[in-house]
Amino acid sequence: MTATQSLPIAVGRRPYFQLGITLVVLAAAGWMLAAHRVTLDSGTDRLAAADGEWLVLACLAAAATWVCAAVAQQGAVVERLPRGRLVAAQFAAGAANHLLPAGAGATVVNLRFLTRCGLSTRRAAAALAAKAAVGGLVRCALGVALLVASPGTVRLSARVPHVLVLLPVAAGVVVLAVVLSGRLRRMVGRAFADVRDVHRCRARACALWGGSVAFALLHAGVVVAVVHAIGIGLPASRVVMAYLVASGAAALLPTPGGLGSLDAALALALTAAGAPGPEAVSTVLGYRLLTGWLPMAPGLLVLALLARRSAL
């Protein structure tokens, strides 16, 4: 069986498992919202009275994230992609990502777009995997760089060293699984070959890494702008670290667009950084409004338009 034939089977093996986790997380999020209704109402009121200029800046940062996603996606492939449709596909992928669990919506849209541009299913999947891997590495690198540049950003507790011990153990388990599984070894080998081909061109490598860095920083910038709009006196470094930690934690839970998981993680991270509960809720609501809820309807319209023009 070829990679293109096995991909749909691999994607369809765990639909009920992902759906179950999604329902559990959403139910837990609903329970938390009901239990903290007073805080939610207070947060909504604070967001309504926020500084309009900072909210405009947050809107601009949110819009720029789609361009950065397009740049990173172009950097993950050797072939030149149509720029206008590429940006439109990222905008549509963001809307689709809020409808399916674990980023499946964005993956399906981008996979379809790349295959329509002439890439094989295997190479399109490898490009998406490379982009996702670079995005994760970029977030980790930004977090480490922020800690080095500003050591007071996070106060490490006594439990942190015990948690850090688990990181090499988990990495060792992943490496062992790849070594023992011939299929995984072949898949990883093909992925590395594609990544190596991309990095042979300096412009492509710069686009992949630069777009990924800008994408993460702009999302963090949206949170920073909303924090300033509400009037929370938190240093930008703490807010950026809170977003990086929250987005990393939310990636472990397969909810549509991080709904529930990212909201709770970001609110907890901001609270741990020093923001009062109502202000933290207001920040999460503002971030969600600008990056998810407002672009949802136009994103779905763009998705339908791309599908009608056979771009997807």
Rank of each mutant, 00 (worst) to 15 (best):
P8K: 05
G172T: 09
G248R: 01
V302W: 10
L166G: 15
D263G: 11
A69Q: 08
W209M: 05
A132M: 13
A171Q: 01
G143N: 06
L289D: 01
P161D: 07
V163G: 15
A3K: 08
A49P: 00
A10W: 04
L303N: 04
H228S: 12
V227W: 01
R190N: 05
A251Q: 05
R190K: 03
V154H: 06
A171D: 00
T2V: 08
P8S: 11
G136M: 12
H199G: 02
L305M: 09
L55C: 10
L176T: 09
S237C: 03
T153Q: 10
V226L: 11
G12E: 01
A133H: 05
G299V: 02
E53P: 00
G152D: 10
L303M: 14
A50S: 14
A50G: 04
L33E: 00
G52D: 07
M241G: 09
E79A: 15
A191W: 08
S150H: 13
Y16L: 15
H199V: 13
W31K: 11
S120G: 15
A141M: 08
V174L: 14
A28F: 09
S261H: 11
V78W: 02
A35I: 02
R190F: 10
V144R: 10
V38I: 09
A3M: 05
L180G: 14
G103S: 11
V108Y: 05
L270T: 03
L252E: 02
A27D: 02
M187E: 05
L137M: 14
R200T: 11
E53Q: 08
V154L: 15
E79G: 06
F192W: 13
L285C: 09
L244D: 03
G135I: 06
A34Q: 10
V11G: 02
V223M: 00
R200P: 01
A273K: 13
A229W: 04
L234M: 12
A280C: 06
V134C: 11
